[in-house]
Design a protein around this nucleic acid. Structure first.
Lengths: 158, 158
DNA sequence: GAAGGGATACTCGGATACGCTATGTCCGAGTCGGACAGG
DNA sequence: CCTGTCCGACTCGGACATAGCGTATCCGAGTATCCCTTC
């Protein structure tokens, strides 16, 4: 069980973009160079964040990527949800209804499987934790990053 | 992000074995037929539960699988942990240290990445929920299963 | 009746094949901003 | 000085290639139980 690297990429990009208080779009080339990531694939991942209303992408010569909302209003869970298709690590395939067990059982399957209930409860707790932290929280955890961002991203073009 | 089907299989098998209060070993053939699962692969998955001390496997003619402990002392998390290699869906690859960002940053990387902290916290909440439920809890959620188990598993051989 | 031997029914562990999804790359189309030329 | 045209930089979306892991199957080896034979 593992989630894609895109989550780490997206969060770091959001934090970096958050430090640029003026919302100047940053090109995918510069973002990829920042963390030494495959440029084309990073772009593909960030497009998901754009569709989710987390990032804004500007086409054209001076285009690029920026936060669509202030960092305090973007939760970690939103980023995770945008990157991963489903937020349910456990997928119930209802094996209890198959095979001999399914034939022997009466009308017991109207009520949900107890296993699913437990899993969903755990996933809910997980999501709650993720939703409790925002990009702004992450920014506050490494103060040095803000200065570094201002240094790395002056108004000049690449 | 998804966890393997083996988790669902393992939990259902544990619950079923839990209903057989006398701990008579059940062969892999019968377990697979119960839920219409691929016999060989199910065996491979259950072996992980045996190595984790959750199930006990008995070789020989009257051999098979049984719970190694009473159901009240097996948590859902133990089963999940035995099936999945790691309990950390989020893998940090430290991209913050790579590329331009890594070169520009000072000795800032001694302290852990804020993103990892948030993720670990969420995963901890998830595990806590899973650890709070046992196989016995799951057994209690579908009382009809106990009777079905006794019917499906008489003392006779397949 | 007790001891020995073989058949049977299981598990164990490794080797192998398959398929799906995450990862990574490439390309044509569309859009914006600036440079440049002409009026 | 104003306007129209061209060009470069960038994003968008789809198509395609690659790699890793979960899934699935097969096989040889080991072991316990049962039964049958033999003494």
């Amino acid at each position: 069980m593992r989630m894609g690297e895109g989550v780490e990429w997206g969060l770091h990009c959001c934090v970096t973009l958050g430090w640029l208080h003026d919302r100047t779009p940053v090109s995918i080339r510069r973002l990829a160079a920042l963390f030494d990531l495959p440029q084309e694939y990073l772009k593909k991942r960030l497009q998901r964040l754009a569709r989710a209303g987390i990032l804004a992408s500007a086409p054209g010569a001076a285009g690029g990527w920026s936060l669509a909302r202030p960092p305090e209003r973007i939760t970690v869970m939103e980023v995770v949800a945008a990157m991963e298709d489903g937020l349910e690590p456990f997928r119930c395939t209802e094996i209890r209804q198959r095979g001999v067990n399914g034939q022997e059982a009466g009308g017991e399957f109207d009520r949900p499987c107890g296993i699913v209930s437990v899993m969903r409860g755990a996933e809910l707790a997980w999501r709650r934790e993720l939703a409790a932290h925002t990009i702004a929280d992450l920014m506050a955890r490494s103060p040095a990053g803000a200065e570094r961002a201002r240094r790395s991203y002056p108004r000049t073009t690449a």
